[in-house]
């Protein structure tokens, strides 16, 4: 991420924000296009979609043996890419947590699967597929897990209604 100022002997290099922890630092230094942020004291890595699996492998090699969770957020129209895929990692040996996030577009959202790296991501990715419709390439068995097999629609998307049945004397479910 370096900008050239025009003249040869003045090169302005933007200082990339890097975490203090040495293990995380070396992990981020390996990848140039990944942004590090601190969200309420937790390290978050924004990874471009094409490098998702690659970053995952490096993270595992750096000591993050456990993939705690894979989930998604549907940002509807608030962001250019509709879905945000979030994977929480845990390193038991170094006592560290790391969150990696990436985005997936509105049409045919698809991300590489983390199952070849961490087998424990299997059910979590199936749940994201079931609830959001995001496909994971390389997943051994991407089928619906929580809803019946013939269910249509993806419930946790924002345009899927709650499905509530009208109840006498109660006008709405939405609070605010």
């Amino acid at each position: 991420m370096s900008e050239e100022n025009g003249t040869v002997d003045e090169v302005v290099v933007e200082e990339r924000a890097l975490p203090e922890n040495t293990i995380l630092r070396s992990l981020f230094e390996e990848f140039e296009d990944i942004i590090w942020e601190l969200s309420h004291g937790q390290d978050v890595a924004s990874v471009p979609r094409e490098r998702w699996a690659e970053f995952g492998e490096s993270a595992k090699a750096a000591g993050f043996e456990v993939c705690v969770d894979v989930t998604a957020v549907d940002w509807m129209r608030q962001r250019p890419d509709r879905f945000e895929i979030v994977a929480n990692l845990l390193s038991m040996q170094h006592r560290l947590r790391l969150r990696m996030i990436t985005t997936a577009p509105r049409e045919e959202p698809s991300v590489a699967s983390l199952v070849p790296i961490w087998p424990g991501a299997n059910f979590a990715e199936r749940e994201v597929y079931d609830m959001f419709g995001v496909t994971f390439e390389g997943h051994p068995d991407l089928t619906r897990i929580l809803m019946p097999d013939d269910w249509e629609g993806h419930p946790l998307r924002k345009d899927f209604g709650v499905g509530s049945v009208p109840v006498q004397f109660k006008e709405s479910n939405r609070v605010s």
Binding site: P109, E152, G153, H154, G161, G163
Partner: peptide, 10 residues
């Protein structure tokens, strides 16, 4: 994976 909002009628 379409934005199909048809829900199953309870």
């Amino acid at each position: 994976m379409s934005d199909d909002t048809k829900t199953r009628d309870t």
